[in-house]
Amino acid sequence: MAVTVSAEGAPAEQARPLDDEPGPRSWARAFNDLRQGWRQRPLWGYLGWQDIKQRYRRSILGPLWISISMAVIATAMGILYGALFQEDIKTFLPYVATGLLIWNFVQGCILEGSEVFIANEGLIRFLPAPLSLHVYRLVWRQTLFFAHNVIIWVILMIIFPHPLGWASFMAIPAFALLVLNGGWITILSGIIATRFRDIPPIVASLTQLLFFMTPIVWSYDRLRDNPAVAERAQIAELNPVMHFVEILRQPMLGDAIVWRHWLVVGVITVVGWGAALVCMRNYRSRVAYWV
């Protein structure tokens, strides 16, 4: 509000044009929310780490249970499905374990992302903080889970050596893409699920189905090389999660890089963030009323 002085010497208020100040539905406020949330890295970084510590607060091994649980599941699935599909355990166990490692990150962003704002109802109502803070906190927590579980991959690479080379460094940008996509998935599903509370259980059911449609405990290459089902195997590529798993699993196991998967992930990243930003622009200001 600007203040001017009239000819008589009395102060007179001059209204600021409404067009100068962005309304609740504006790109400026949506991008500013993301910037302000990123600037509060010490806060959501600390909160994400505390989430893990609280989960294992009274246990002796603490966060090591994250890796132990993952190792038990990966070993059991690798041995079971390896026997069913007659796979070589030396190659199939690292294949399954690496796939589960990536899947847990994707699944965490999908499932917890759909409830990220609902779970933080108290903070959203009474703490003047950007919405993106809760998104960064969730993605950071999933990154810490992933980092804990990488120890399983290291152990398997020692027990069952794979021909890792310079191409294995592609795992770094691949994981960066996973983190980037985890952000828009959390924003989009979180806002929609806050408005429609039936979404989280639906997402949970679909995620279970998505697990069996993704080549984690079964090999897409072996299915594709089977002449009887080679054409049907291409249907698996309609599953977007498959491409996210492959861009990271291939360099982690020393396999040849298939750039088709990177192209698909790149397109999904652009489209997904576009949809998330539109959702942030239109409905960011309503989340506090919906929780």
Rank of each mutant, 00 (worst) to 15 (best):
L84F: 06
A119P: 09
S59C: 11
G99K: 07
I152N: 13
F145H: 13
S69M: 09
S132M: 15
A288M: 05
S6H: 04
Y283M: 08
Q50M: 15
G165P: 11
G122Q: 15
I110S: 04
M252V: 09
L101M: 12
Q54N: 14
G190R: 07
R58Y: 10
E246D: 15
Q208G: 14
M77K: 03
V245N: 10
L180R: 09
A83F: 01
D225Y: 02
H148F: 11
V271S: 00
E115W: 09
P128A: 08
R137H: 02
L206R: 10
R141F: 07
L101F: 14
H261F: 06
G78M: 04
W273L: 04
C109T: 00
L164E: 07
N104P: 07
S67M: 11
A256F: 03
A228G: 12
M280K: 01
L238V: 02
L177F: 14
G183R: 03
D198S: 08
F92D: 00
Y56A: 01
V287I: 02
T4P: 00
F146N: 10
Q142A: 13
G183S: 06
L133P: 02
G62I: 08
F196C: 04
V96G: 06
L127C: 05
D19G: 11
S59A: 09
M1Q: 12
I60P: 01
G165W: 08
G45V: 06
P63N: 07
